[in-house]
Design a protein around this nucleic acid. Sequence first.
DNA 1: CAGTGTGAAGCGCTTCACAGCT
DNA 2: AGCTGTGAAGCGCTTCACACTG
Lengths: 210, 210
Amino acid sequence: MADNRARSRAQIPDPTLLRLCRYLRILERTDDGTISSAEIAEAAGVNAAQVRKDLSFFGEFGQPGVGYHPKDLLASLKLMMGLDEELEVVVVGAGALGSALINYPGFENRGFRVVAVFDNNPAKVGHRLRGYEVMAFDRLGEIIADHDVSLAIISVPRVSAQEVAVALIEAGIKGILNFAPVNLKVPEGVVVRSVDLTLQLETLAYYLRD
Amino acid sequence: MADNRARSRAQIPDPTLLRLCRYLRILERTDDGTISSAEIAEAAGVNAAQVRKDLSFFGEFGQPGVGYHPKDLLASLKLMMGLDEELEVVVVGAGALGSALINYPGFENRGFRVVAVFDNNPAKVGHRLRGYEVMAFDRLGEIIADHDVSLAIISVPRVSAQEVAVALIEAGIKGILNFAPVNLKVPEGVVVRSVDLTLQLETLAYYLRD
DNA sequence: CAGTGTGAAGCGCTTCACAGCT
DNA sequence: AGCTGTGAAGCGCTTCACACTG
């Protein structure tokens, strides 16, 4: 077995990182004694060599002539990817989307826990929303510090997104999942991943032209 | 974000298509007489040559020494990308996420109209949800044919997603925006774009490891 | 044998750099 | 001079192919 710890610092291509997360899903619902790179590839819709190459960024997990042990591989990957323990998240923006995200079962199931919900709409602040008390933005710093939260979800309107990001970063947030349709500018050391729902629909439209 | 696209005709790179949609946003909120590739690039967070190259897939829209006329460029791009007229969409799955998507302002604002909402939960069928009557899956074919809908959004649990996709495709759907965390298998000619919300959070976790 | 791990080739997107237009 | 459009170079991800292993 190679030195996994040394490799965990290596720079991993973004596409690889995304695929690795998808492999996790596949491994979680596999009970077989072993699974081959070809089987993972089939389920993920990618090339088998791709699967092996992706895994090789973290080390050697397979047995030649046999394959991988799903449970072991799953545990190893989770550890390498920083998913071995529960992660806390705050949600900023309690509109329709934010409300849906608050108790999106996918988050809870996979080790993410929403610890607080923020919104600046006076009609919402102080009220309960799906089990959470909605708090005003001025309590961001306090809550994030108290719970030592590193991740945040931004689901506010486009025009407020950048200032919310600034406030979050100042409060110590290191990773942002942004749903506002804008390119957030953040300092070195902070990672942003944007999901633009409309963008996805729009690209589909391109393929419908006739 | 897995995608399973059937490169219909002109082979525009997928990354280009996504960026072009982002340029649309930028152009929409630009009033200036002209805008340069450098300005678009700055707002989109990409290289200026990238912007010009992306646009060149569709033609020549700029004036050397001057730049682009936002209004004209916007109209041209919308036309080329099949976004010049309203597109109808059905939503399958009326859970928290589906409910939020039904009247997500971003869809409405950018020319997408939700024409129907489906769910197989007897507790929901027949009831109204944000202005829509929730219908059972067995009415998919009827509604899609009547309205001649080409786009669908899948927001059902993972285990039902593939069968819903099959039903949608049989009913004539050509483009699917999939929120279920599974790699949908679809025939040639149907395009799927998957958005996996948890996946995005998971990749952020990787950068937080210390 | 069946299947992994990986150097090397292949390929496609990104960036450069500059001719050409206004 | 300022900026576009684009061939060509650069670069990084994907795929191949095969030595190696249990």
